[in-house]
């Protein structure tokens, strides 16, 4: 329980501060009104003075209403939340079962491959800055992983990503009866020959950041690149013009073939 509070606290603070840096309104989760949380009192309030260490309390009576807890100095170091070490050159060898579990989890969050993933947690009373705090470059905390945004920052995250049901309605059975079968994730790209770099088997639209899934410390198990130190992915892996909705032509346009004079007419008899 206390570990959970610590985790929650740290993420609340991280959100607040990064939200401040990102500069988009107030990244602070708002209280839900009824169940006034004690956490609110711990957040920096206007009454906190600039001095990082000094807590202003003129009398004991005021102590209860005085903002305490995180000091400015501590708030300023959110980036140093302990993150597991990531070694770029570690050899990645996920087992088949790990791969399968990982891709199952991934598929469970999408109606079809290419659909924006649903949000597997609550987003009540939070806003874009709060999403961005964890999902801009990914976070691992207490066994939970925030995946990395695969596209550039776009406002109004929940426009595309459907959240979990709001707290009061969590117990409602929301299953639907449908026969819809979504497009499965591609297993692999095509290789021109054994050992050739595979083509990219999915659209690159909204997936400009290959590392979101294929690399770095927060990629999907089983999808990681075997060579994360190489950064220009499309240098070797060819995307698909069709999937990327490029202008298409029926045939690959080529110059007309060479006009070679055939043997019967030409040989030995120049005219």
């Amino acid at each position: 329980m206390s570990r959970f509070i610590t985790v929650f606290l740290s993420s609340v603070i991280a959100m607040a501060v990064i939200g401040f840096f990102v500069g988009i309104g107030d990244g602070v989760p708002k209280s839900d009104g009824v169940n006034e949380s004690e956490l609110v009192d711990l957040l920096p309030s206007e009454s906190a003075v600039a001095d990082a260490k000094l807590i202003p309390a003129l009398s004991y009576a005021e102590i209860a209403s005085t903002a305490m807890g995180p000091t400015k100095a501590w708030q300023a170091t959110p980036q140093s939340l302990p993150q597991p070490e990531f070694d770029l050159y570690t050899k990645i060898e996920p087992s088949e079962s790990e791969k399968e579990a990982s891709s199952k989890l991934r598929a469970s969050r999408r109606a079809y491959n290419g659909a924006p993933p649903i949000i597997p947690h609550l987003v009540e009373n939070t806003n874009d800055a709060a999403c961005y705090a964890c999902h801009s470059s990914g976070v691992k905390l207490a066994g939970l992983k925030a995946s990395v945004m695969s596209h550039v920052y776009l406002a109004n995250c929940v426009q595309c990503h459907a959240p979990m049901a709001p707290t009061p309605f969590q117990s409602i059975d929301a299953t639907v009866e449908t026969t819809f079968v979504g497009l499965p994730a591609p297993k692999e790209g095509k290789r021109a020959y054994k050992g050739a770099p595979p083509t990219i088997p999915h659209s690159r639209w909204m997936r400009e950041n290959c590392n979101a899934c294929h690399g770095g410390p927060h990629g999907w198990a089983g999808m990681e690149s075997t060579h994360p130190w190489r950064t220009n992915c499309v240098q070797c892996h060819a995307p698909s013009a069709t999937l990327d909705q490029m202008p298409e032509s029926e045939v690959v346009p080529m110059l007309p073939p060479l006009d070679v004079v055939t043997a019967e007419v030409g040989v030995g008899t120049p005219q």
Partner: peptide, 15 residues
């Protein structure tokens, strides 16, 4: 929309 799982999951009931 109430026959779409990701949407119904996000908003299962009126309130």
């Amino acid at each position: 929309t109430r026959r779409l799982s990701p949407l119904n999951r996000a908003m299962p009931t009126a309130y």
